[in-house]
Simulated assay, not measured.
Amino acid sequence: MRSLHQAGRRPLALAELTVLHAALYALAAGRRPGRRWVTVSWALSVLHLGMLEHRTRLATADVLTLLRGNLAALPGGAGRGAGVPAIALDLADGRIARRRGTTTPFGDYADTFADAAYWTWLTLRHEPSRTVRLAAVAAWALPVVTVTGLALRRGTMPERPRPVLLRPAAALQVVVALRRLARR
């Protein structure tokens, strides 16, 4: 109920999310995972609008993050070069958010969940190496499940651990993207 109340307090952000996801929904027609993926993305985004804090609208970086999180549902989202735009969008949204001072918990968690959703899906669906698939689950799915479980248990979002020097999930993105590009 609290999440719906927070969404109602941000009608512009709610409208922006709906328009963005409606466009993605149209592009996802006839694709797998397609429209269900986009619908889940919209619902999760709406339920977390309170994490925009004082902002009433989505920032450009938020839109890029949500676009990245929905790449699996879009044409070309699983193609040989699919990892390249995912990495480019990831770099762009972070740079834009920091430059414009538009970082919020919404964008921070959306970034994590977008990576987890897209890269886990791409790896589990298209990576032949069992080792790389297990690494994907460890790098993306396991942390999301852990943080989500803690959030549900505590009733609030916990701080995520942030390694400063070594970012294994970022390194794995490059590995998966290069392996996908090299595969025939």
Rank of each mutant, 00 (worst) to 15 (best):
V132G: 10
G81C: 07
V144H: 10
H126S: 14
S129N: 03
L89S: 03
V145P: 08
T131I: 09
R36H: 07
V137Q: 04
G77C: 09
G79K: 11
A78N: 01
L150P: 00
T104S: 15
H48D: 05
R153E: 00
G77S: 09
G101M: 03
T146G: 09
T104P: 06
S129I: 00
R98H: 08
L150H: 13
H54N: 11
A139N: 08
L150K: 14
A135L: 15
R100S: 08
A61P: 03
I87Q: 02
G83N: 05
R130D: 10
Y118R: 09
S45K: 08
A110Y: 09
D90G: 08
R36L: 15
G77H: 12
Y109G: 09
L91H: 08
L47C: 08
L74A: 06
T148M: 08
T60H: 12
G101N: 11
T146S: 11
T65N: 02
D93V: 00
L124D: 03
A151Y: 08
Y109E: 14
T123H: 03
T131D: 13
R130C: 01
V40G: 01
A110F: 05
D108T: 11
M157L: 15
H54S: 14
A61W: 02
G81Y: 00
A43W: 15
P33C: 10
R98T: 00
T56Y: 07
V63C: 03
P85R: 00
R100C: 02
D93H: 12
M51R: 15
L89K: 06
V84E: 12
A97E: 04
G149P: 01
G101I: 02
G101L: 09
R31M: 15
T39M: 14
A92P: 03
P85M: 05
V147E: 09
R80K: 10
G79P: 02
R36F: 06
G79S: 15
L152S: 07
L66A: 01
T123L: 07
